[in-house]
Amino acid sequence: MRGKGIAEQSLAPDFSLPDLTGQKLDLSSYRGKVVLLDFWATWCDACRDEIPHFVELQNKYGGQGLQIIGVSMDDGPEPVRDFYQRFKMNYPVVMGNAKTGELYGGVLGLPIAFLIGRDGRISAKRIGATDISVFEKEIKDALQSAAASSYPGS
């Protein structure tokens, strides 16, 4: 379902958060790509179910400009590192915090995902377990829309 909080079409709030190796990841450095920002946690069943599908989507659409970024809401990175290896995750995961949650209108339930267009604006928000076909359609739309906007005459 679509949720309340941060409005669609608003600029995605920037953040700089440590990834699982401690390196900082800046959301702004992905401007120009279609970003799927997934707030999740290792203890969240519905989140775990989605991860293998996100790995597939990253493989399938990464070459067209999709970048999935996981924001873990676990209390510490240890279980996340284990999970990352076990599920052969192929996209960056950063450790989120309450401030990041508040920036995005309150992450008060998991999973929550935001689709961000190449222009940095939020094009969709999904709360709770969401069928992967919904994500795939929205990603394809965002990639095509971005491609079309690059060629105004098309």
């Binding site: 946690a41 809401m73 209390d75 989120g96 915090n97 309450a98 949650g101 508040e102 992450v107």
Partner: peptide, 17 residues
């Protein structure tokens, strides 16, 4: 989760993990 508790919780409630 503590991250969720920090963002919002019932006043007077305790976080336990």
């Amino acid at each position: 989760s503590h991250v969720l508790y920090t963002q919002a919780h019932i006043p007077g409630s305790e976080y336990i993990g």
